[in-house]
Amino acid sequence: MTTLEQQKQSAELIKTLAHKAWESSSFKDELVKNPVSTIESVMGYKLAENAKVIVEDQTNASFFFLNIPRKPNLDEMELTDEQLEMISGGELVIIATVGLGIACVGLFAAGIAIGQAID
């Protein structure tokens, strides 16, 4: 399950990679050609051994890119301790799936915004 902290770290990494690619065409070319090793060099540590990353250069304003995120596996999702505490206290709980869906839409919207910002 992806935690809120992991979502924040992922968003920050995407932001960092985009800015570096905007500033350096050689970095952008390397990111597209060798995404795993390039991302690892930015993060300072290795990705999972079976990690596969696809990077598309979306800087051409003539194209509209749509990323279809993977469907969440609800059977394997568990509530965090914080969410369990909220339930036991009677507070409103936002299920992780909703948060994941919002994060995916946010990343999609960020891709659109990034594409429009280049114009």
Rank of each mutant, 00 (worst) to 15 (best):
K28F: 06
I114W: 11
N50H: 09
S24L: 06
I95F: 14
G89S: 15
I54A: 12
G99D: 06
E91R: 12
C104H: 14
E49V: 15
L79G: 02
I87L: 07
G101E: 02
S24Q: 01
R70I: 14
L17R: 02
C104I: 02
G44E: 08
G106P: 00
E40Q: 00
G111H: 00
V98T: 04
S10H: 11
Q7P: 04
K28N: 05
S88H: 13
N50F: 11
G99L: 06
G106S: 13
L31H: 00
L79P: 05
Q58L: 13
S62L: 14
A11Q: 09
Q7C: 04
K33A: 07
L107F: 14
L79T: 07
M43C: 02
I68E: 15
A109K: 13
G106M: 05
A117D: 10
Q83K: 09
E5G: 07
T3S: 05
F64Y: 14
T3H: 05
S25G: 13
K46H: 15
E91A: 11
I112H: 05
K28S: 08
A51N: 12
L4K: 15
L107I: 04
W22N: 10
N67P: 10
S10N: 14
G89D: 07
T80P: 00
Q9V: 09
S37P: 03
T97F: 00
Q116Y: 15
L84W: 08
N67W: 15
G99M: 03
L74H: 01
T97A: 09
S37N: 04
E30G: 00
N67C: 15
K46R: 12
M1T: 13
A96W: 09
L107D: 13
K15Y: 13
Q9E: 12
A51S: 10
D57I: 14
T16D: 07
K28I: 00
D29P: 01
A109L: 09
A21V: 05
A11I: 05
K52W: 02
I114Y: 07
Q6Y: 01
A117K: 06
K28W: 06
I39D: 03
Q9W: 13
T59R: 09
E49H: 14
L84T: 03
V55Y: 00
K71D: 01
E82N: 04
K8I: 01
V42M: 04
Q58P: 13
D57Q: 10
I39K: 01
N73L: 00
V32M: 01
N67Y: 12
F63V: 03
A109H: 15
N34D: 11
M86N: 01
C104E: 12
A61M: 13
I118S: 09
Q58G: 14
I112R: 10
V42D: 01
A18Q: 05
F108E: 15
T16E: 10
E78P: 02
A18H: 07
I14E: 05
I87F: 08
F65D: 12
K71R: 06
L92C: 04
M1I: 04
K20D: 00
E82T: 10
E23L: 05
A113R: 09
S24R: 04
K71H: 08
K20R: 13
I14T: 14
